[in-house]
Nucleic acid binder design. Structure first.
Lengths: 138, 138
DNA sequence: TCCTACGATGGACCAAGTCCAAGTCAATAC
DNA sequence: GTATTGACTTGGACTTGGTCCATCGTAGGA
């Protein structure tokens, strides 16, 4: 945890109370929170924190590569603190639960040159969908 | 084109001028339009059509499996009329251009049982990202 | 301890999408 | 051809998720 804060400081981040709280919230939870959920948890520790600051800080963490944005559907983006281990997502189509998964193989290699249309392809994002055990039984 | 309209009628769709126009707009274009773009094109042919109707109709086409929704990022959803041929998407991270692509291999098979957490996994959606030729040179 | 540029604030604003009460009309029945 | 009716459409208000900006506050260097 203080690893994250250290890394940020080393990159010249000005360490404010607000940024610390946002970083700690993300780092502490291993689920994928929405910006509003981050705000709610941050507010517990630092009641005056503003929505704009949470958005700013999340945006900065994303561009620093410390967290990744997951746009699961048309709803709110979720923020995934587990950015250093490449992984994909498995989402329950019914209740929206998300799990990190690690498929075998290299999906980038599965896209032949003839299907790249001159693009410089740099990443691939896979979303598996299905029913989680709970929703499957119900 | 009238294939689509026939299929819809056979499923008990009440064929109104509005629905016909929306279906024709989607069927005519082989790009991936946003709801607003569909509305704009529909308005050319049928000026009184309302936004709510376009959203309703798109939603119905999606649940009938005739078009698929593509939530590329936090922006507006796009509607993909090419729902009958399975395919994935390649998106330019800079300008947002989308192309349909057909990767080799079966991504569902790449997810081992140990990574399924009891889910009944039914589909996978892959999004390749990179720079299109135009944005790469600029 | 003082300065100052970087960061935080909150309230207005925006875009995408949903909801709803009232009006309209496609398809069936006669 | 006309009547009937329930499904469809309308448009405007509303909601959600997010951005912008002028102003104020403060972290961290000198």
């Amino acid at each position: 945890m203080s690893d994250l804060l250290d890394r940020l400081r080393q990159r010249g981040w000005r360490m404010t109370a607000q940024r610390r709280v946002v970083a700690e919230v993300l780092d502490g939870e291993h689920v994928h929170l929405t910006a509003d959920e981050v705000l709610a948890r941050a507010t517990v520790r630092l009641p005056e924190i503003s929505r704009a600051t949470v958005y700013n800080t999340l945006g900065e963490l994303v561009s620093l590569g410390e967290v990744t944005e997951v746009a699961t559907d048309g709803r709110a983006k979720r923020y995934d603190p587990n950015a250093h281990r490449p992984h994909q997502h498995l989402i329950c189509s019914h209740c929206g639960a998300i799990r990190d998964v690690h498929p075998a193989g290299d999906p980038l290699a599965d896209l032949p040159d003839s299907e790249r249309f001159g693009f410089t392809v740099s990443e691939v994002e896979m979303t598996y969908r299905g029913l989680c055990p709970d929703c499957n039984h119900a």
